[in-house]
Amino acid sequence: MILNDWFVVFRRHAAYASAALTAFLVMLEYALPGAVLPYVPLFPIGILSFLLLITMPKTEHEHLARRVVLISICVLIFTTVLLKLGEAGGTSATLLIAAAFILCILAPVVLMKSK
């Protein structure tokens, strides 16, 4: 029983940590091309984060829905920026990245405060 609870907590934090890490690394790669991709398998980490988030138990979903949405938005925005705007950049891309970065910093803070 303890192990099961421990795993639930571990899994929840693994989901948030991997989502925040994906968001941070995507932004770092965008800002400094070549700083991340050659060393870290960014897309597998992103997929792992996504799978962890969507396979959480229902109770976890109810408790953590707000935070999951926040993190998902971060990942979604970064993915959109990377895929659609990519190298083109521009003011809108910069604003989106800034907003997503703030969200990805805030999400873990919100999670800690809600405990």
């Binding site: 421990w6 795993f7 907590v9 571990f10 934090h13 693994a14 948030y16 940590a17 991997s18 925040a20 890490l21 941070f24 690394l25 770092l28 700083a35 991340v36 060393y39 870290v40």
Partner: peptide, 18 residues
């Protein structure tokens, strides 16, 4: 605390590695 720290430490470790 251990369950919480492990994933965050791994994430911070990746950032430090970069």
């Amino acid at each position: 605390i251990i369950a919480m720290l492990i994933p965050w430490c791994v994430a911070i470790g990746v950032v430090f590695y970069i």
